[in-house]
Design a protein around this nucleic acid. Sequence first.
DNA 1: ACAAACTAACTATGGATATAGTTAGATGGC
DNA 2: GCCATCTAACTATATCCATAGTTAGTTTGT
Lengths: 194, 194
Amino acid sequence: MSLRYALIALLTGRPMTGYDISKSFSRSVAHVWHAPDSQIYPELNRMERDGLLTSVEVPWGKKGTKKEYHVTDAGLADFRAWMESPLTPQRQRDPAYLKAAYFDFADPASVREQLRQQQAYWEEQLSMLEGTRATLVDRTHPTLAARLSKLTEREAEFAVRYKVYAYDGLIARARTELAWIADGFALVDELYDS
Amino acid sequence: MSLRYALIALLTGRPMTGYDISKSFSRSVAHVWHAPDSQIYPELNRMERDGLLTSVEVPWGKKGTKKEYHVTDAGLADFRAWMESPLTPQRQRDPAYLKAAYFDFADPASVREQLRQQQAYWEEQLSMLEGTRATLVDRTHPTLAARLSKLTEREAEFAVRYKVYAYDGLIARARTELAWIADGFALVDELYDS
DNA sequence: ACAAACTAACTATGGATATAGTTAGATGGC
DNA sequence: GCCATCTAACTATATCCATAGTTAGTTTGT
């Protein structure tokens, strides 16, 4: 159900087509929420049907058109209501931890290889997150910049601070994962090389 | 697809009925993997059909019977193959971070209330995780104890160390979340009380 | 002139997951 | 004796989500 609100959140910055949204999702927004096209397009249609969005047909080239989605007042009200509502806690469901608990079923070479892969993944995540954080702080992040232009300085300050706060959380999480992976290497070394 | 392997992992400890598994899932194993009955029972049937498990009818009371599931050699081989295979990295999809990035759409009282709820949730998680970790270290954890009895001391040592390692990761993650939540309180105070 | 790459908006299919039940026997307390 | 609660094994329904396409128009480089 959060996909719907991730979409409204994005569209509060600026109106976008489904394609724009899909690109935003695979770029920066994917850091907090990932979704493939096959979820985005149907959800946009449902949201328009439910009156949370309206679409405007915009010409594209000579013959083509594209649909630009705008958040309606009802959509914004719905988003605010969600923002005020309590969070349902996340279920733990992470294959990395499940696997780690049973690493004794794999050989040490394979364990090390998997740790290396996880390490590469989280290091890449971390540098992406830090890069994006920097564009939030200096307000060059495109979607954020579009939204800030419609706000007072005080409001803009709040929007920036909370986004930076969210990214700081993601960065801390990535660092925690990396520290855990480092401990994993140390454990394998201890168990097999001594 | 990991549900299947979470089930085999559990059943390597000791044979269980669907009901036992369901209970294990809502108790300790839920820390690494959560699943409702409606996933567990059909998956057990599919796994038996695929030859990964066999079931034995066991009497229960005077008239009743229950089905006790055992891991087959094929099941164990499948599990080992999964344990050796690379992990597909997890997509970020956490409503808490999505919300945090847009907290400026909610009023500070609601933000504080949501932070308190998150804090309560993670504190409870943390104490559960630490409790379970202790039962792993002293080997009183029931499912672990059952599995250890079939292993050599060296193998048992490995099984325990990896499980403790997994829990240490979960504990570190919980602490990171709590630190992030504390930063959230500080941020709200700074933005609204000055 | 033509191909490659990009923009746009989907769809089809299957598997994963959540919510909320049902049916039936067993056990313990009063 | 009976009620509440527990054990056992499901089912029904709907939504979420991933993978992997399709169709069509646009832009850019050579």
